[in-house]
Simulated scan of single mutants.
Amino acid sequence: MTFDIYAAYRAHLTDDQMSPPLAGILALAEMIKNSDAGTMFELTKELKDAAEALKKQATNPIGLSAGCDLFVAFTTLFPHDSAQSFSDLRNQLVQHGEKYVEEALTYRQKIAQLSLAFIKDDSIILTHSYSRVVMQTLLHAHQTKRISVYVTEARPRGLGVKTYENLTSAGIPCTIVLDSAVAYVMDKVDFCLVGSEAVVESGGLINAVGSNQIAVIAKAANKPFYALAESYKFHRSFPLNTYDLPTHTETTLALPRPMQRPMGLTARPSVMPRKNVPPSETATPNSVVDFTPTTMSIEQMSRNPQVDYTRPDLISLVFSDVGSLTPEGVSQYLVGMFAG
Rank of each mutant, 00 (worst) to 15 (best):
Y150G: 05
E165K: 15
Q136G: 08
A254H: 07
L22K: 07
M31H: 08
P293G: 05
F71G: 00
V101C: 08
K48N: 15
S287T: 13
L93P: 05
L205V: 10
N166H: 14
V209S: 10
T137P: 04
S65D: 12
P278W: 05
A51N: 01
P224Q: 07
D179R: 07
H96W: 09
V335L: 13
L77E: 15
I206L: 06
F225Y: 14
S35H: 01
M301N: 03
E30P: 02
K33F: 06
A198Y: 03
A112M: 04
L139R: 02
S237Y: 04
C68K: 01
I214W: 06
R90D: 03
T249Q: 12
H96F: 14
T14P: 00
Q332S: 15
S169V: 11
Q17C: 12
A8Y: 00
V194E: 04
P269L: 06
S19T: 15
Q136H: 10
V200W: 07
E197M: 05
T75W: 00
N276I: 04
M296W: 08
L22W: 02
K56M: 13
N91C: 11
E103P: 00
Q300K: 07
N166L: 14
A73P: 07
P273D: 09
H142M: 05
P20I: 03
F71V: 03
Y164M: 15
D16L: 13
F234L: 11
M31C: 04
N91W: 06
S280A: 14
A267Y: 10
A37K: 02
S180T: 15
L139F: 05
P20S: 10
F234C: 09
I214E: 03
D49F: 10
V94D: 01
S331E: 08
S237H: 03
G195L: 10
Q57M: 11
I172S: 02
R257W: 09
D69Q: 11
A58C: 14
P156C: 11
D190Y: 02
T106R: 14
R236S: 13
L89V: 00
S82G: 10
S231L: 10
I25T: 01
E42M: 05
E103Y: 11
T292N: 11
P293Y: 09
M135E: 15
F234Q: 06
L93Q: 01
L138T: 01
T14D: 08
V72M: 07
T247E: 07
Q113K: 11
D321L: 10
P173E: 09
L240R: 12
N286A: 14
T44C: 11
G38P: 01
E153M: 11
Y130S: 03
F41R: 13
M31N: 02
P79W: 01
I62Y: 00
D49W: 02
R132Q: 12
E52G: 02
K55A: 15
V72R: 04
N34I: 00
K45L: 13
I5A: 01
I125L: 01
V194F: 05
Q136P: 04
S202K: 08
Q95W: 08
S231G: 01
Q57R: 12
G203W: 00
M31D: 01
D36P: 01
T76D: 15
K219D: 07
